[in-house]
């Protein structure tokens, strides 16, 4: 088990190298550069070139790539061009809102998705089942930015319950933070809960048809015990997989939702970095998100141990 985890962690390194290279090359091959953005629309070409020199962006691409590797080895993601601080610091500044938002959204999607899936499966083909699945279909079909704007219209503009946008950091009080995250978390989480509900339902249905369920019922176990103790635990493996994937999807979904709700998280960081071509930040955030993806996958794999004693990692 320990060697397995160590091996998986070691495997992060080559992946990180590939991600680092691809992020670097793609961004530098894309047109546009930060110097023109700093200089503004009325600046002449000389001014743009002068700023380019100051930023060290006039060096040939391979030279810049080698410099980037050199810094990476030392654990240094470089200096942001626009934020005037180290990328690592910029990322750490932005982790709080994104992390809280994704965890909150994940909680919502699991809290809605899993029960909805289980109930649908238990009352298979009933009106409840159909209503849940219909709602789930609508849920997976709505893009989260649209849902976000609808929520703003309904709960901020009409009802005035929540602020339109913006984020209140934890230091100003938990309740305020929670309040500022309710709508974004729903915009993000509802879509995923639909996905989770559909997967939970179908894996429950599969399990409920298994022989050991029939055996359980035959030996006189109550329906509750059958469904919630035996079936649910077995149905959790595909469900946890999809929850893991959801978590990763939520992080990328956060990019859009943070933009709509004006939340200064990793998503906003990368969007403004892309629009202004803040290369070090883009590379740093991509690398960081790739790392998070890989860790989530690892955590998902390890969580199987909890649900299925037959799973062994060596």
């Amino acid at each position: 088990m320990k060697t397995y985890v160590a091996r998986r962690l070691l495997a992060l390194l080559p992946v990180a190298l590939v991600v680092a290279t691809v992020a670097f090359v793609l961004m530098h091959l894309a047109p546009g550069d930060p110097a023109s953005v700093i200089a503004g629309p009325d600046a002449s070409a000389d001014d743009v070139q002068r700023i380019e020199r100051q930023l060290g962006l006039d060096a040939p691409l391979p030279v810049q790539l080698v410099r980037w590797y050199g810094r990476l080895v030392r654990g240094d993601l470089g200096q942001s061009i626009f934020l005037r601080k180290p990328v690592t610091e910029a990322i750490l500044d932005r982790v709080e809102p994104t992390l809280l938002l994704t965890v909150f959204a994940l909680t919502i999607s699991v809290a809605i998705g899993v029960p909805a899936g289980v109930i649908s499966a238990r009352y298979h083909n009933s009106a409840t089942d159909q209503a849940f699945m219909m709602a789930a279909l609508v849920g997976v079909s709505i893009p989260n930015f649209l849902l976000g704007l609808l929520l703003i219209l309904c709960f901020s503009v009409w009802l005035g319950w929540f602020p339109v946008a913006g984020y209140s950091p934890l230091e100003y009080g938990y309740l305020k933070t929670l309040r500022s995250l309710v709508m974004p978390a729903f915009a993000l989480g509802l879509v995923q809960s639909a996905l989770i509900a559909r997967v939970a339902r179908s894996s429950m249905l599969d399990i409920l048809r298994e022989q050991f369920i029939t055996a359980g019922r035959a030996k006189g176990l109550g329906e509750r015990a059958v469904v919630y103790k035996h079936a649910l635990k077995n149905a959790m493996i595909p469900t946890v997989t999809i929850i893991g994937i959801s978590f990763a999807l939520l992080i990328s979904g956060a990019v859009v939702v943070e933009q709509v709700f004006n939340i200064p998280g990793l998503g906003r960081l990368i969007i403004s970095a892309v629009l202004r071509r803040d290369y070090p930040v883009i590379q740093g955030v991509v690398l960081c998100i790739a790392g998070i993806y890989m860790l989530i996958n690892l955590a998902t794999d390890l969580s199987y141990l909890l649900f299925d004693p037959r799973v062994r990692y060596q």
Binding site: L153, S156, V157, V164, A165, G166, V260, F261, N262, I271
Partner: peptide, 18 residues
């Protein structure tokens, strides 16, 4: 000075008094 890149949100925010 708050950066609000989404124009719909700038409008909603002035509407609610934010």
């Amino acid at each position: 000075f708050i950066p609000v890149p989404d124009v719909a949100v700038r409008l909603a925010g002035i509407e609610t008094g934010e």
